[in-house]
Simulated scan of single mutants.
Amino acid sequence: MWLTDWVKEFFRKADMVLLALIVAASLFGVVLIYSATRYLGQDGIRYVPIQIISILLGVVAYFIMSFVDVELFTEKSWKWMLGFNVFIILLLKTPFGVGAETTGNNSWLAFPFLPVNIQPAEVAKVFFVLLLALQCRKLQDWGISRFSSVVQLAGHTLFMAGLIAVISGDFGMSLVYLGLFVIMAWTAGVKKRWFLLGLAGSAGGMALVWSHLPSYIQERFTVVIDHITGNPETLYQQTQDRGWQQTRSVLAIGSGGVFGQGYLQGTQTQSTSEGTLPARYTDEIFAVCGEELGLIGCVAVMLLLTAIILRCIWVARRASSPMSAYIAMGYAAMLLLQTGINIGMCLYVFPVVGLTLPFFSYGGSSIITLYACMGIVSGIKMRSLPSWLRDRSQLE
Rank of each mutant, 00 (worst) to 15 (best):
A279L: 08
H212C: 08
F221A: 11
T272S: 11
T222H: 05
V301L: 06
G262C: 04
Q240C: 01
G266P: 08
V224C: 10
Q261T: 10
P232K: 03
T267C: 03
Q265R: 10
V224Q: 14
D226Q: 01
F286A: 11
S271M: 04
Y281H: 15
H227N: 11
V258D: 05
P278D: 10
P278C: 08
Q238L: 05
G290P: 08
W244K: 00
V250Q: 10
G243Q: 14
V299T: 06
T234Q: 15
Q270S: 13
D226M: 03
T234V: 06
C298W: 01
T222S: 13
G290Q: 05
G260Q: 08
E219D: 15
F259H: 02
D226L: 05
T269Y: 09
G297I: 09
G275F: 09
A287N: 09
R248D: 04
I228A: 05
T222W: 12
T267H: 03
G266I: 06
I285D: 07
V250I: 12
P278F: 14
Q268D: 08
L213S: 04
P214M: 11
V301E: 04
V209L: 02
S255Q: 05
F259V: 15
L264G: 01
V299P: 03
W210H: 00
I225H: 06
T267Q: 12
E284W: 04
M302D: 07
T239C: 00
L213D: 07
E219H: 15
A252L: 02
Q237S: 07
Y236V: 13
G262S: 02
T282M: 10
V250H: 04
D283S: 10
V258S: 01
E291I: 07
C298K: 00
G260H: 07
S255Y: 04
G290N: 09
I228R: 02
T239A: 00
I253N: 11
V224E: 05
S255E: 05
M302L: 15
C289F: 01
L295F: 12
Q237P: 02
S249P: 11
